[in-house]
Structure formats: C-alpha cells, structure tokens
Design a protein around this nucleic acid. Structure first.
Length: 238
DNA sequence: AAAACCTCCAACCGCCAAGCG
DNA sequence: TCGCTTGGCGGTTGGAGGTTT
C-alpha cells in the first residue's frame, strides 16, 4: 500500500520562508496544523524542530563562549542530560546546540588534553582555552520527587533559604507536596545564581561565586519546570 | 591531487507524558 | 478508565565540509 510521503532531509530556503511566515502569522503551537497552514510537505515534528532549532528569532549562532561552556558544565552537573533545561538557562542556545556541543566536545575528548576545550566556529580562528574541568557527574532526574525522606525535621528547615522554603512549599516541621511551583523554583534558582556571596561548594561540589545566570530569554523554558530528582535534592540538602 | 579520515550539526527516530473525548 | 492525538524530549545518524596523509 502506498502511503502519503512527507519530505525529509535538509530544508530549502523556500521551505524556511514558508514556515517562518506561517509561525509569524499564526504563532507557535498547533504543530499538527503547521504543515497545512504553511503549505509544506513536512511532518509536524520536522516543522517544529526546524523552527525551534534554526528559524526561531534570537537563536545565537556560532561557537560557544567560554562562559557558556562553563555554565553548561555546571548545569549538566546539576541536571544531567536534560538538554532543554540546560538550554533554557543559556540564552540563545537551543537544546540541540547544547546536546551537540556536549556530545562533540565535552562527553569524550580522546584527542584533547584534559583541561582543554576547543571553542570556535563561524570562521573565527580556532582558539584553545584552558578551562578548569569540572568533571560532569550526570544524575538521573526522576519523574516525581518525594521530598519526605529528606525533609523531615526542623533541622533541615534551617538549611534552606526562605525562597527555597517557599518554593518547596515547606513550613517548619511540615513536609509538604512534591508539586513545585515553577515560578517559586525559578525565584529560588535566581537567588541561588545571582547572589555573588553564596557558596554552595559543599552541597554541589562547585561554586556560584561570581557567577550570574541571565534570566530566561527563550520563553517557556525554565530550569525548574520539572520536579527535581532525589539525587539532586540530596545534593542540595545534604 | 586525491583518497582517507575527522568534525560538526541538522535532522530523524522512537519514546513518553499530558490532554481530551 | 481507556485509547487516541499532540507536544516535547533525548539519543542517534547521515552527510557536508574540513583536515590530514
């Protein structure tokens, strides 16, 4: 039986234009309607991916800056292979960009000395930058978080900042819902990232000193749009 | 000059979860 | 409750272009 075939492979400039016009006219979302609306012989997934990874405004092209790599390493240590979440904290970068960079430069570097990262692209002269490697320790993120095994006492309460307490919906002596408010979690994260004096080396094995994460510029992405993993929580609360 | 090899990244694939009837 | 649809994600691949031999 012959099934209707959709086009695959590289996108043409014309297809890009059609998709872009369609998104600008109707907005993001309703991806199942996009091929029809745009007059494209592409599947919904392909359209979505093309938009998110290439056509979307404000996408930063070119090589990763040293600070972006550093941020990526830090976030990967915290989040593991949660590329979309990591990308959400690196302005202008897509999950695909981050994943590609990680897989090609950071995951295994058999031909490069430890401590060296290649940061180049876009005709820019290659440059090798010495970076203190924080060896990634990927952690799995479970689907649901149950805080109760870890937050059981007043003592634990004392370890948390006020916004963290609020974010986790914790009141003294009371263990509450694992359902987190994204806004509250971002508030907590921003406090964690933005406070130059805050050191959490002991908790996470690295420091936020002098490190400031910009607020999300890619709408819809936030680092804590997900329940934290038990391991991450252990790291934070230990 | 050209073959072999390597690097990079756009795109595809398969899976999962949420939403809905 | 169940099955279907849709959106979204991470893993993987294919191939273009660059580099080395």
């Amino acid at each position: 039986m012959r099934q209707s075939s959709v086009r695959k492979g590289a996108w043409t400039a014309e297809e890009d234009m059609l998709l872009k016009n369609c998104i600008e006219k109707f907005g993001e979302g309703k991806w199942h309607l996009v091929p029809l609306r745009a007059g494209l012989n592409r599947c919904r997934k392909s359209c979505r991916l093309r938009w998110l990874n290439y056509l979307r405004p404000n996408i930063k092209r070119g090589g990763f800056e040293e600070d972006e790599v550093d941020l990526m390493l830090r976030l990967h240590k915290l989040l593991g292979n949660r590329w979309s979440l990591i990308a959400g904290r690196i302005p202008g970068r897509t999950a695909n960009d981050v994943k590609n960079y990680w897989n090609t430069h950071l995951r295994s570097r058999p031909k490069q000395q430890k401590g060296q990262l290649k940061v180049h692209k876009d005709g820019e002269q290659s440059k090798h930058t010495m970076v203190t490697i924080i060896k990634p320790q990927p952690c799995t993120i479970s689907k649901a978080l149950n805080l109760s095994p870890y937050i059981t006492s007043q003592d634990t309460h004392n370890l948390l900042t006020s916004s963290c307490m609020e974010a986790f919906n914790i009141s003294p002596g009371v263990v509450s819902s694992p359902t987190l408010s994204a806004d509250k979690m971002n508030e907590y994260l921003d406090e964690l990232f933005d406070d130059p004096e805050k050191e959490i080396d002991d908790q996470l094995g690295w420091s936020f000193r002098g490190f400031s994460a910009e607020r999300d510029t890619l709408e819809g992405n936030s680092l804590f749009d997900f329940p934290l993993d038990d391991e991450v929580m252990l790291g934070l609360l230990d």
